[in-house]
Structures are given as C-alpha cells and as structure tokens.
Amino acid sequence: MPDTAPPASRRYLLVSPCRNEAAYLRRTLDAVVAQTERPELWIVVDDGSTDETPAILADYAARHEWIRVVPKPDRGHRAVGPGVIEAFEAGLAAAPPLDGFDYLCKLDLDLDLPPAYFATLMDRLEADPRLGTCSGKPWYRTASGAWISEKCGDEASVGMTKFYRTSCFREIGGFVREVNWDSIDCHKARQLGWTARSWDDPEIRIEHLRPMGSSQRGIVSGRRRAGYAQYFMGTDPLYFTATALYRMTRPPYVIGGLAMLWGYGESWLAGKPRQKDAALIAFIRRYQRRALTVGKRRALEEVEARQAGLQGPGTP
C-alpha cells in the first residue's frame, strides 16, 4: 500500500520546489500518495507562496508522515532556472544524506502521474546499470480538450520529473543554477559515461498541467527564454536553428520558434556569458553536429558507445 515503507533497495527521495501552485497542487499530491511504491521521504519547498499552497501542503503533511514541508521567504516573484534550483537545493539541505537513498527525483507540483510511475522507472534503472536518469513523457490538454505531446527528445529525462540514480546525481555535481539546467545535466551524465532516457509509454505518461515553454508572462516570453537557455548551454548555432524551425511546427505555430531564435540571437549579440564547463560545451557541440549529419538516434548511439567504458555493470 502507498503508506508502507519502500524496500531498502528502492528508497527514493522526492524534492519539490513550488510557488503558488494551489491550482494544480492537489492533483500532484494525490498522484504521489496513490503510487504503488511511495517515496521514503518527500520534501516540498514552499518558495514563498502567497496563495492557498501552504494550507494545502500542511493538510497533506499532517496526514502523511513521509511528506515534509520546508518554507522559504517570499522573494516577490516566480524565478525559473536559478530560483527553482535554489529551492531544490534548500530541500536537499533539509533531507538526510543522499547515501540513505537509492534514487532522487526533482518533481514539479503541476503534474498528474500514473500510479506505477516511480515503480516503473526504478524497474528500468535496475535493468540497466548505465542508466543514470530517466522519466516519462509530458503531454497536456488544450482548452478544447485535445491531448498534445510536448515532443521531448528520448535522450534526456524531462525537467519536471528528473528521476536520478543517486550515484549519477552526485557524479555530475548536481544541477547548475541557470536556465537549461535540465538539459545540461543529461549531457554531463553522458560525458561521464551514463545514459539518460525518457519514454512515451502509457504507464509512465505524464499530464503536464502547465504546458512546457509557457511562463508567467506568456508563452512567447517562455520561448524567448528557451532561446537564451540554449545559448547559455553552448548549443551549436546551426543545430539550434534547426531546432527552432522544428518548433515552428508545434503550438504556438511559427511564433514560438521565432521567439526562440530571438532569445538566442539577442544573447549572442549582447555577448552574454555561457556555462563555464568548456569541455562539456565541446562535447555537446560534437554530438549536435553529428546529429545534423546522421540524425539524433545514430549520433546518440555513437556517443554512448564511445563513453561506455566510463560506467559499467559494477557501477553502484
């Protein structure tokens, strides 16, 4: 049953940064409570909420001893990227040492999850010793009720539910405090010999209650921010252009891809700083340029084969 302690070899820690999520919060809380294998501990960091979020969290924490709420002062606004990771790290700091957990997940509170979501991910991690991080795929519903895939690549776990083997998370050094942290981490894992995956299987399909790429100031602002995020990561310009052109075929049609190009281009023209890991930038660009010539699937297979000697069956 969900409130039964998990097996010793399948202990997982959830850490959830949140701010003003009253509109979605109960859906996620109920989905986690209903999991076939519940977390060992779930730390929810209330990042200065001013709506009903604190009262809802207090209610669930009172009923489930494995849910713990960590409050943070109100900074006055929602902060994507650095703010989210700052809140996540506050949750990690409030948790017992990671050595006590087999797995770690950064989980957003605007999701609905199938009942066997975490159990299925752990099964797949146990079956593949090189798999360092994984997730299902996010979908969302439009106002008309249409069911739309967010079309995330297979080579990364998605940012709203980053499920990690704790040994891999420690080796990559955690998440960077900047936008695109949720892509940089998977590239870093691959550089170190791990693999990262997401699957669009029904038993782990996620409903994203707030669509990816939107922002508190509108979806165009979110796409523009995504362009800056790719610039910060060090994405190859030609590869990014191809990505933005593809995004023009997804809602919001055309304008979303144009906003991404705007965000990347203005960052380049302004000479904004990029991430400081020059070796990782070179690693990312080699993969991206290869993907343009042979396709992402083959490029991924090649880079994973090349890095395979860095991790193996004996990896804890």
Results as ranks from 00 to 15, higher is better:
K106G: 11
G265H: 06
I148M: 01
A305F: 08
Q288H: 06
V70E: 04
P7T: 12
V294N: 13
K188Q: 14
L238F: 12
S267H: 01
D46S: 03
K72G: 02
A291R: 00
L107W: 02
K272E: 10
D236H: 11
N20H: 08
A119T: 13
C168R: 03
P71L: 02
P211K: 06
F175N: 08
R63V: 06
K276I: 12
K188F: 11
H77K: 10
D128L: 05
A90T: 15
N180R: 15
A8S: 13
G145E: 00
A116T: 13
V44F: 07
Y253Q: 06
W42K: 09
V15C: 07
E207R: 04
G256Y: 00
V294I: 15
R197N: 14
Q216A: 09
W262S: 09
M1A: 13
V69D: 00
W194V: 10
F240D: 01
L192R: 06
R38P: 14
G81Y: 03
T195A: 02
G271C: 06
P6S: 09
A279P: 04
I219S: 01
R124F: 11
E171Y: 06
A31N: 05
L29R: 08
C134V: 15
D30K: 12
D99H: 11
P54K: 08
V15N: 06
P316S: 09
G153W: 03
R124T: 07
L292R: 04
M1F: 06
K106Q: 13
K276L: 07
E155G: 12
G132H: 05
V45F: 02
I67Q: 02
T161R: 10
G76T: 04
F163A: 02
Y253R: 09
S149T: 07
R19C: 02
Q191S: 14
V158D: 03
T4W: 13
V294S: 14
N180Y: 15
I219K: 00
L300D: 09
R297F: 05
G256P: 00
P7G: 04
T133L: 14
F118I: 01
A8M: 12
G193S: 14
G132L: 08
C152L: 15
D128P: 03
A259T: 00
L14Y: 07
W147Q: 02
P82T: 15
I204D: 09
Y239F: 15
A94L: 13
P316W: 14
W262L: 09
T241H: 15
R290A: 09
L92E: 11
G174H: 09
R210F: 08
L92I: 07
Y60M: 01
R210V: 06
G132A: 14
G295I: 11
A8Q: 10
I284T: 05
R205T: 14
Q216S: 12
G136K: 03
A226N: 12
G83W: 00
G145S: 00
L192S: 03
C134E: 15
L25D: 07
G257R: 00
S214N: 04
I85A: 01
I43Q: 01
D46N: 03
L245S: 08
F101Y: 12
M1K: 13
E52S: 05
M122S: 05
D102E: 15
R197D: 10
D112E: 13
P17T: 01
D3Q: 15
D123E: 15
R197Q: 11
F118Q: 08
G173F: 14
L310S: 02
A119K: 09
K272H: 07
S215W: 01
D51H: 04
